[in-house]
Structures are given as C-alpha cells and as structure tokens.
Design a protein around this nucleic acid. Structure first.
Lengths: 132, 132
DNA sequence: CTCCGTGCAAACGATTTGCACTATG
DNA sequence: CATAGTGCAAATCGTTTGCACGGAG
C-alpha cells in the first residue's frame, strides 16, 4: 500500500501550492528548495504513483513533456503554442458523451482528449512588441 | 526548393501505400525493404519536410511517438489505448469554431486537437479471449 | 558546379531502471 | 523487521545534429 513518505508529501504539496501545470523537472526545482537531496527519479516515480492513485492528474500534451495537474476534477486544457504553458479550460464543451461520436469503426470508446491551442496573454503582449 | 530525391519519393509513396498512421521507425522498416541503405535520420528529416510542405500530416498524439498521416484533409483521430494504433475519425464534430470556446482566459485561439480514445476491434477481440 | 540531401555516428532531452541503502508502517 | 521507497548513475527511447560525401537541378 501507499506509504506517505516525506518526499511524496512535499511533491504533492508543492504541486498543489503552485496552482500550475508543471513538468517533472519544473517541480523538481521547486521541491529541491525544500529538500535539496531529492533526486529527479524520485519526482518522476512519485508523480506516476500519485497520478495512478488519482491524487493528481497527468497531462499528456501532444509531443511534449508530460505535465501534472493539481486539479483532479474533469476539465480540458488550453495551451500556448509559443511558451507551452498549460491552463485549465473551464467552459463546458456541451455534453460530449462517448456515444455521440457516431460511427467509430468498431472501436469501443473509453474517452477523449480535447486540447485547445492558442497564444497566452503574456505571449500575445510579446508578439505585439516585436511587431513594432 | 524541394528536390524530389529517390528516398523522399519512396518514403512518401510507402506511407500513402500503407494507408496507415505510421511512426518514423515503422515507416523506416517498410522503406528499408525497397532501399536497404537508407538511414533512419533521412526518414525523420523527410517526414518533417513533407509535413511542412503539406504533403503529409503530422500527428502528435499525447505522450507518444509521432505518427504521420497519408491523408492531408482535415479530420480528427481515434486511437487504441491498448495497441496504440491510430485511425481516422470521419464524423463531423458539428461546427467547432475557435470562437465557440467561450472564455479562454485571454488566450487567442489558434486551433484545437481532438483525440478520441478507445479500444480497437482487434484488441477488443483479444480482451474477450482473456476473460474466458 | 552548386548546394540540398544523404548516411553515419554521436549528441540530445525526457524518462526509466538496476542497485545497494534507508526508513515507513 | 519486511518491504516500499530512495538516491545515484547508467540505460533507454525517440529524435536531432555535425560532418564529410554524393547527386539533383
């Protein structure tokens, strides 16, 4: 069963405190400030275990590093194509149920992933500056 | 400008012939049968170039290897959570336009990616056998 | 002939793993 | 005190890159 070790506890707490969607190494940097001798492997291992246990979410954004989500409730994500930041998307994408996908070529549907792509406010600002 | 080399031509042709969503190394194996001395790097380079040129599609399925699409027309994908095969999803997800995502926290929307997850017919069959 | 493209091997970034040690329950 | 978890370094996986050579335009 799940032992609540010091490192596991700190990893979980730091992720929740950040209120962001961090990559393993970003979180590693944060956690090191509290527990300098922790190893990156431990961070990876625990993020995997915590997400398996449903205590955090795992975000597999297309073709990039995994990110981990402090918010376990169901929601989609938007991410910035420039800085790769990820944010929660709160809007309801009005009632998508597996059954609504119609003919799926014999697949049994288990879920879906919606990723909205865009440019975040910060990067929009920077883009405008460049134009000048 | 784009030189049509022998390797480029074969890579493109083999992908189209396969009618599947292949990874670079799957395609490499196919192409090697026709041109044994081709290198994996060349396959990667050309897939990148061909997708840039809009002659094939690039699929960045969450957290996995990239796959390349013989079909350039706009469509979403479904993929098998067991064998990781990817198929086209032809159904219209009725009129999604960037503007319809509502409040996006100041992001300027550039697109979205919809991935439906499921179990493919082949894997469903295998699962049933296991149950016995 | 001029470069773009190639093959090869080495480099790379993200993640995982084998191992001997440590500490939780 | 059993065994899950740790730190470290090395391994792995997918992908990219530097370089000298080769071939398309």
């Amino acid at each position: 069963m799940l032992r609540m070790t010091n490192q596991r506890d700190i990893i979980l707490r730091e992720l929740q405190k950040s209120k962001r969607h961090l990559t393993a190494d970003e979180l590693y940097d944060l956690v090191k400030k509290v527990m300098p001798r922790i190893s990156l492997a431990t961070v990876y291992r625990n993020l995997e275990i915590l997400s398996e246990a449903g205590m955090i979410g795992k975000l597999e954004i297309s073709g990039r590093q995994k990110r981990f989500d402090y918010d376990v409730s169901e929601h989609d994500h938007i991410y910035c194509v420039i800085c790769h930041k990820v944010d929660n998307l709160d809007i309801a994408h009005s009632g998508w149920k597996p059954e609504e996908f119609g003919d799926t070529g014999g697949y049994s549907i288990t879920g879906y992933r919606l990723e909205v792509l865009g440019i975040c406010p910060e990067c929009l600002k920077k883009e405008k500056k460049k134009e000048k």
